[in-house]
């Protein structure tokens, strides 16, 4: 089968995808996990109940999550330029990816933490634990297995989103599939990139499941 791309291009794209996913996952988690925690503790009945914070944060997350990634990507270009001093390339793609994934992680983390039994929270409170101690010694360890699955889901979501990163010259496997495979009718590229993405997603999901099982001691 004939193709127009070189192996170098493929490896370059692979590298870009790994960098984009890895870096935005890191910063996304850095923002998203605290967002999830704040949602859980400030909600009505939470350990640090705060009507105002919850009422602002909750809909804000929904608003950001409503935006299609491609729109978000373009809409925040001024913000991206402010942060990384460019609006094209891999690093320019990372900023919108973080903005996209952080509220997503926040919501998933919220769900994971809400699974922790109210009895555990009550025991923590009965022991006179501070808010920080409740989060650090009770909430996070008890939700750890579930949080691993949360991060797995977020990573796979990010891989999907990176395909659009080509719009701002971010590159990556998805971009390769669109600009060479789809737009130039290169079937080989489509097959190879899709195969790579399947392997990626499968691998990440299996690893996530395994770690989560271990953490949950099933």
């Amino acid at each position: 089968m004939n193709t127009i791309i070189t192996a170098d291009q493929l490896f370059q794209a692979l590298r870009e995808t790994v960098v984009m996913v890895g870096v935005s996952l890191f910063f996304g988690a850095l923002l998203g996990i605290p967002i999830g925690i704040v949602l859980v503790i400030t909600r009505p009945g939470g350990i640090l109940q705060n009507r105002f914070v919850f009422a602002v944060l909750n809909p804000l997350i929904n608003v950001v999550r409503s935006l299609p990634f491609i729109i978000l990507l373009v809409a925040i270009i001024p913000f991206t330029r402010l942060l990384v001093h460019t609006s094209i390339g891999t690093s320019a793609a990372i900023v919108p990816l973080v903005v996209y994934v952080a509220p997503y992680i926040g919501r998933l983390v919220e769900n994971s933490l809400l699974e922790v039994s109210p009895g555990i929270m009550e025991a923590a409170e009965a022991m006179g634990a501070t808010t920080f101690q409740v989060i650090w010694h009770f909430l996070l360890p008890e939700a750890f297995g579930s949080l691993i699955l949360t991060m797995t889901t977020a990573t796979i979501g990010l891989i999907g989103a990176t395909a659009m990163a080509g719009t701002v010259g971010g590159g990556g496997i998805g971009d390769l599939a669109i600009s060479y495979g789809y737009q130039r009718f290169d079937t080989f590229v489509i097959l190879v990139t899709v195969a790579i993405l399947i392997v990626f997603v499968q691998g990440i999901q299996s690893a996530g499941n395994r770690f989560a099982r271990k953490a949950r001691r099933d």
Binding site: A123, E142, F144, A215
Partner: peptide, 14 residues
């Protein structure tokens, strides 16, 4: 003040 519970409320992760 110590407290014990009907469903024990132990941390499964520890």
């Amino acid at each position: 003040i110590g407290m014990i519970f009907q469903h024990f409320n132990l941390l499964e992760s520890k």
